[in-house]
Amino acid sequence: MKVKLELFGASRDLSDKDFLEFNIEKKISIKDLKKKIIKYVDENFKGNKNFKKIIETSAFCSEDNNIISENYKITKDQKIGIIPPIGGG
């Protein structure tokens, strides 16, 4: 299945596009998705520490725009949003 990770804020620096795509073989938790994103940073940005910190401190949101916990299971193709630490106004 495919997980489309929509990028916001500081996480936009992870790609020229607005999203990253991950091909996943079986159902996966947000906690495990985070590990995959960190692996992506290792492979594409030489383990950039700032990027890793952003991922570690980010929340995630579901397709229906709710913040989800690390235990949330992704079981089918879907969009997940990464929500880095916020600060508008």
Binding site: T57, I67, P84, P85, I86, G87
Partner: peptide, 11 residues
């Protein structure tokens, strides 16, 4: 530079 913000917590 993206400014450091406050993490959002899951409920």
């Amino acid at each position: 530079e993206w400014l450091k913000g406050n993490p959002i917590q899951a409920n």
